[in-house]
Design a protein around this nucleic acid. Sequence first.
DNA 1: TTGAAAGCGCTAACAT
DNA 2: ATGTTAGCGCTTTCAA
Lengths: 330, 330
Amino acid sequence: MTTTIRDVAARAGVSVGTVSRVLSKNDTVKPRLREKVEQAVRDLNYKPNHLARAFRMSRSDVIGLIVPDITNPFFAELAKHVETVAAARGLFVMLANTHDDPLYEKQQIENLLERSPRGILVVSATDDQTAILETDIPIVAVDRQYARYPAIATDHEWSASLAALHLLENGHSHIAYIAGPEGTAVARARESGFRAGIEKGQADTGLAVRVETVRGAFDFATGEELGRELLQRPVGERPTAIATASDQQAIGVMRAARDLDLQVPQDLSVVGFDDIPLAGLVTPRLTTIRQSVAALAEAAIDAVLDPRPAGSHTQFPGRLIVRGSSGPVA
Amino acid sequence: MTTTIRDVAARAGVSVGTVSRVLSKNDTVKPRLREKVEQAVRDLNYKPNHLARAFRMSRSDVIGLIVPDITNPFFAELAKHVETVAAARGLFVMLANTHDDPLYEKQQIENLLERSPRGILVVSATDDQTAILETDIPIVAVDRQYARYPAIATDHEWSASLAALHLLENGHSHIAYIAGPEGTAVARARESGFRAGIEKGQADTGLAVRVETVRGAFDFATGEELGRELLQRPVGERPTAIATASDQQAIGVMRAARDLDLQVPQDLSVVGFDDIPLAGLVTPRLTTIRQSVAALAEAAIDAVLDPRPAGSHTQFPGRLIVRGSSGPVA
DNA sequence: TTGAAAGCGCTAACAT
DNA sequence: ATGTTAGCGCTTTCAA
């Protein structure tokens, strides 16, 4: 049979209670006994039964991570950091994809909840505000709000304004913004932040700036398509800069520009959002807003371990990463 | 309190044993009683305690997935499919990264093992053959061998030969191959498969083909660097085609080619391996070998659920995906 | 076919 | 400070 706490107790000549105490280390056991127990553990190569412990304490050392799609580089990056931070805290990560389906998302959360995890991190695919589940397992929203759960997110609004300011500083006065889907709060926040940045910049400099906004999915194809429409126009009509709600869109725009024989950044400046790994690999490298994923991950796990009140909010600023895709207006 | 099986039993007027039997559905309970129990479950909104069940049966419904780095698009893709298949089987996935560190990998496997998962899938970062852990929890190697555990993998060798044949068919007679790190079995298999393909092609056509092999990491930077060295040479000396051990290397090569003002595929054909999402997004799109990740994931989970003998091997063929980066020799 | 009862390995009162 | 003991909720003998 597997060796249990009883065997250790017998070997060490102490009671199971004592063994349990030294194993969960938080208690007061005389060094003398502690030493004997530790020796017995070594002798027997005792491994605690986590299943039993979790059952008894009705609380496991697992935290759930729910993302729309792990193949999205941003979520993969997040998952990596979450996993790293979790490991440092002695926690394991259970991963679930929702495939951007609100119903499936809810289902997954419930499935996870039934397994009594220590907490759940959810990057929600939905704007549904009614999703409060009845449980005392801490749930925290990451990267965007989810119902009224405490949220750990990038300050999308403020961060997006950085892109606007950067373009203004480079003298652009005809700018297009490719927004994300209207249905998502993240897209709306980035868009309104971008506009706010423009307005602030205008107020500061007194310059008149023309901004036009188009909208579509966060993906590459959307960027390419909307980018082409914007860039096909004759020179005077054409924006000299395009900012987007995602790097993927921005990279799509760059492709459209190349197809139309426009030089980036000479003929067109492009600014993305997220700083996915690919952003540093395209030619020219993409200027973008980097989210501090490591900070998000750490804060999210801490929020699980040390629960926050509903409706609480922690925001992290994004950072402008200037690379080759943006520059002064020609 | 939470409602337990006892409450259900009381409500249904049966014993806990009976309730347990209908819940685990595999047993023979008279329809009459079964119905009463099911009604009681509904009335009470009873949710089974998975922790208790797992403890009692010393076996959970979790399967571990260990990958070198989830931000690698190939592993992310794999994780997604594994998660999907697992969900369909009522399993959850616990994710762990090893950061390509063999020691940490072993540690993670042991940590996972202590949690009594249903099984473990490992994409190993090491060639270490000595890693047989003592456990009766099924461990299966995915995408590459790991010790003597049953393996589910792409037939890297055969698949790589497809790239060679494709280039030969396009008339290339001076080809460079960028291999992966010598220390990894995957890299070696792809390389030897490529060479075998060349030899086979030569034998079939009677053509003499010059192949030179260089070697480096699987990453983008390596491809760019080695690609540049190969392509800087004067026209006669320069290969007309480069095949690589990874898409990332291939994309690096394409960048180097662009920097040197070489046209792909007119001046240079490029073939990668893996078919990561990015392969379809670069310009021109990358010809590559696609692994059947969905098949791998499904087979791997089935191998966990229905254990195979040590040393067993299941291989899936890769598929040549011809896109814009390769063509007839100029 | 069903009920009764014995634990799985651990933690946390409660005693001492 | 340490030992004793009663379960946590479930599955699974063993009887009936």
